[in-house]
Simulated scan of single mutants.
Amino acid sequence: MAVELSSVHMEVRSYEIDPQHHVNGSVYQQYADHSRFACVRAAGIDIDELLGSGFGPVNLETVIRYHNELRGGDEVDVSCAWIWGEGKTYRVEHVLRRGDGEIAAEVQHVSGLLDLKARRLTSDPATQWRSRAKRPELLGFS
């Protein structure tokens, strides 16, 4: 498991609740997306500049593991940890933790960086991300 590098704090809103009075499943992914975007911004990367230079992040696979329900009014901390390897993809892992400390869910993404002209994944996404980051440690770089 990766080290949690960044976290955002949110409150469950009433419109995110399903008929069973817990958070709708798709909202967990939205929380993870929000956390990842906040992490990128905190690392000093301007998404408009990234897109303007011809690259766009894409999710290729998302897995959600539910542990404990989130309900309306609950507070949740959503971590963001980046895991780099070789090749065209990388992973981003999120842990959604309730205010009482219990893990509500884990969300894991396999992602890539799309070359917007070629419409193909770039062969070395880590280099592209690292070169743009003012705080690369927030993206898992040492």
Results as ranks from 00 to 15, higher is better:
92 V>D: 07
112 G>Y: 04
128 Q>C: 12
138 L>E: 05
139 L>Q: 01
133 A>N: 06
85 G>D: 15
90 Y>E: 06
97 R>M: 01
59 N>T: 11
23 V>Y: 01
50 L>V: 03
9 H>F: 13
138 L>F: 04
69 E>F: 03
29 Q>R: 08
60 L>E: 02
86 E>T: 15
12 V>Q: 03
132 R>S: 07
8 V>C: 08
6 S>N: 13
85 G>V: 09
118 A>D: 10
94 H>V: 03
91 R>I: 01
86 E>D: 15
8 V>N: 07
9 H>Q: 10
35 S>K: 00
51 L>G: 11
26 S>I: 12
2 A>M: 14
37 F>H: 13
69 E>V: 02
25 G>P: 01
28 Y>F: 15
97 R>G: 00
117 K>T: 14
5 L>G: 09
142 S>D: 15
44 G>L: 02
116 L>V: 10
17 I>M: 09
52 G>D: 10
109 H>T: 14
75 E>N: 11
92 V>R: 04
25 G>Y: 12
141 F>T: 05
25 G>R: 11
76 V>A: 01
61 E>F: 08
3 V>P: 06
103 I>K: 13
46 D>H: 08
35 S>R: 05
41 R>G: 04
69 E>L: 04
110 V>S: 01
32 A>S: 05
70 L>H: 02
89 T>Y: 04
31 Y>K: 00
57 P>L: 09
42 A>F: 01
84 W>K: 07
111 S>M: 10
102 E>A: 15
140 G>M: 02
78 V>L: 07
82 W>T: 12
134 K>W: 05
73 G>W: 07
30 Q>P: 03
63 V>L: 13
25 G>L: 10
79 S>C: 06
33 D>N: 13
53 S>N: 13
4 E>I: 00
19 P>C: 08
122 T>L: 04
74 D>N: 15
96 L>D: 01
46 D>N: 14
16 E>M: 02
120 R>A: 11
63 V>E: 14
58 V>P: 04
51 L>Y: 11
26 S>T: 11
93 E>D: 14
10 M>K: 12
137 E>I: 01
137 E>N: 07
112 G>V: 04
11 E>W: 08
29 Q>N: 12
53 S>C: 04
99 G>F: 07
45 I>Y: 06
135 R>F: 01
21 H>N: 14
19 P>Q: 00
58 V>N: 02
138 L>M: 02
29 Q>H: 11
133 A>P: 04
31 Y>E: 05
51 L>M: 12
62 T>N: 14
22 H>M: 10
128 Q>A: 14
75 E>V: 09
62 T>D: 09
117 K>I: 07
94 H>Y: 08
94 H>A: 00
50 L>T: 03
39 C>F: 00
78 V>D: 04
4 E>F: 08
89 T>M: 10
84 W>E: 06
85 G>I: 08
93 E>A: 13
46 D>K: 05
123 S>G: 10
102 E>T: 09
5 L>W: 06
121 L>G: 00
97 R>K: 15
30 Q>L: 12
93 E>W: 01
49 E>H: 06
57 P>G: 07
